[in-house]
Design a protein around this nucleic acid. Sequence first.
DNA 1: AAATTAATGGAAATATATTGACATAAAAAT
DNA 2: ATTTTTATGTCAATATATTTCCATTAATTT
Lengths: 170, 170
Amino acid sequence: MVKDIDRFSGMSAGLSNRLFFRLYQCANMLHKTGTRALEDHGITTQQWAVLGALTRPGFEDGAAVGDMAAFLLVSRQNLAGVLSRLEAMGYLERVVDEKDGRSRLIRLTAKGRGLWDGDMRPVIADYYEEALAGFSTEDRIHMIHYLDKMLRNFKKIDPDAESRSKEAAE
Amino acid sequence: MVKDIDRFSGMSAGLSNRLFFRLYQCANMLHKTGTRALEDHGITTQQWAVLGALTRPGFEDGAAVGDMAAFLLVSRQNLAGVLSRLEAMGYLERVVDEKDGRSRLIRLTAKGRGLWDGDMRPVIADYYEEALAGFSTEDRIHMIHYLDKMLRNFKKIDPDAESRSKEAAE
DNA sequence: AAATTAATGGAAATATATTGACATAAAAAT
DNA sequence: ATTTTTATGTCAATATATTTCCATTAATTT
């Protein structure tokens, strides 16, 4: 993923390597700096993603674990651990789905909603501003376009994620 | 990181949120599909990044743990664990730096080099081709540009990573 | 209605990410 | 030369990522 001498298809292979390495580095820094930004509230980037998902229209009345996992593109088992910790902190609750005894609906508690609206969002907005300094609206649109395109490719490589993600309506 | 109603600075805040969420999702899928691509060789994306780093000019005669950590943008402690597992599998070795008794130089073994050149690189090339289907050379250049820019911002947020990364000559 | 198959969420094992702390070694200051 | 400060790599605790497996529940087939 780093140095990969161009032996396959010329310059483009070198660019691919560089691109993936950058994506890898960006992801590491996203988690590091994002978690750092919210450390006063004891929230990690994964917890941020979960809390954010729960404020989303369509999820406000409770979200199934499988649907959230598909939406966030993590495994159900991984999500279970993140949910347990957030539940222990009192930010969310799990209730059995009346319509399906296997399913649990995850909902924000009042405490969780207060954390999100009152504490997290201002910090997140500042963080975005710092992390995207020098990015025009056009730059952001372009970058989203490329990430979306790459995501579609990833989902072709992993059809499971694709089908589950579609069901999660994203 | 997901739904963040535009209350701060209009549309751009919504784009920021969407952009970071996509980056978050892409990173998850990169690790999932990348590790899947190399599962026949029992190599994860993090191990791939480490092995790749060790083939890089400047690192071929051995790399210090701190320099590698700075280059990969992970913590020294995290890297130590990844290195231990690769060492246990016989792919790399650690030797004490003659010039600095505190430092260890990490080098690929013949086995590690054989794995990288013979087994991994063809698989990685195929993976890149699938993951970047539909991306022109121009697209790749643009995406690298945006990721580089974002990385610079991240390093401003986390000056430790910046100074250490510069020392690693990247 | 009963049997079979599939879905759901969590347990367990393993790999990887962070931070703080520690022992040893080197650099800097006195 | 000695003392103080900084650097290096590892240990430990914790959070998060995967996969395989399991118990329970629902859907499908017979």
